[in-house]
Design a protein around this nucleic acid. Structure first.
Length: 245
DNA sequence: CACGGATCCTGATGGC
DNA sequence: TGCCATCAGGATCCGT
């Protein structure tokens, strides 16, 4: 099928034949399929990827790159931009698995994401808090939309240094990250254009963002025009009045 | 170790 | 209508 993704699979596809998928986990934005051999498949959707699962799927299109056929149905990986990846790792301890997963921060909705460790993790980061949130360390899972939204709810200006945040503000940000992600999950996730879940349904969190994608529109809290800047080649949206340096 | 910039790729969009 | 520039949900790599 389609063109290669971000990285090669890392094994002969025939080696996957007959393997059992014991279960599916997630780490950061990687999906992990545990195989009976002890190996695992790491699946990442990048920016434009999506998966589809079904008994009978339509013939693959140009951007359908992988069909993983199982006794339960076919898992299809669709990714126009090909920033995504499907990588085989012989074990979780293998070099490739460690390279991709080894340095990831804690899960934002897990018990390990506590204020004390979060504050400690930010202390060594002089960079802008927005960029630190995107970096996957000390916490994973916070993408561009949620970084912008969480900073709004915490009242924190995106350009301030992570290391310089007062403890009280770190605590507020910690709460905001969990709240924003929890709410977004409740709404089925975000979408700009063509995000969809494995059943083809769209998320609709974008319809209620406070700042993301709202440049020049009035802040839903104070009416001030939402500002848009670029940080590390990414767009940042914030309210100049509600978010303090 | 940490930072900032470049980079991978295609599609949608808007200006001329 | 066509052409071109810009921008997009991510994260790695490399030079400093």
């Amino acid at each position: 099928m389609g063109k290669p993704l971000r990285w090669p699979l890392g094994c002969d596809p025939n080696e996957l034949t007959g393997q059992t998928v014991l279960g599916v986990r997630r780490r950061g934005k990687y999906m992990l399929l545990d195989l009976g051999s002890g190996g695992l498949l790491l699946l990442h959707l990048g920016m434009s990827g999506s998966i589809q699962f079904g008994q009978t799927l339509p013939p693959p299109g140009v951007h359908d790159h992988v069909d993983l056929n199982t006794s339960q149905g076919t898992l299809r990986l669709h990714d126009p931009r090909r920033f995504g990846a499907l990588v085989f790792a012989p074990s979780e301890a293998s070099a490739i698995a460690q390279k991709l997963l080894g340095k990831l921060g804690v899960e934002p909705l897990g018990a390990d994401f506590n204020v004390a460790d979060f504050a400690q993790g930010l202390k060594s980061r002089k960079a802008a808090i927005k960029q630190v949130l995107l970096s996957g360390v000390p916490v994973v899972g916070v993408g561009n939309i949620y970084a912008c939204e969480a900073l709004f709810w915490a009242g924190i200006h995106p350009t301030v240094s992570a290391a310089g945040l007062a403890p009280k503000r770190v605590a507020k940000l910690h709460t905001a990250i969990r709240d924003v992600l929890t709410r977004a999950l409740g709404h089925g996730g975000s979408t700009l254009r063509n995000f969809s879940n494995a059943q083809g349904q769209n998320g609709h969190f974008q319809l209620q963002t406070m700042v993301y994608g709202r440049a020049a529109e009035p802040c839903r809290n104070c009416g001030t025009a939402i500002a848009s800047i670029r940080q590390g080649q990414r767009s940042t949206f914030f309210c100049p009045h509600c978010q303090k340096p």
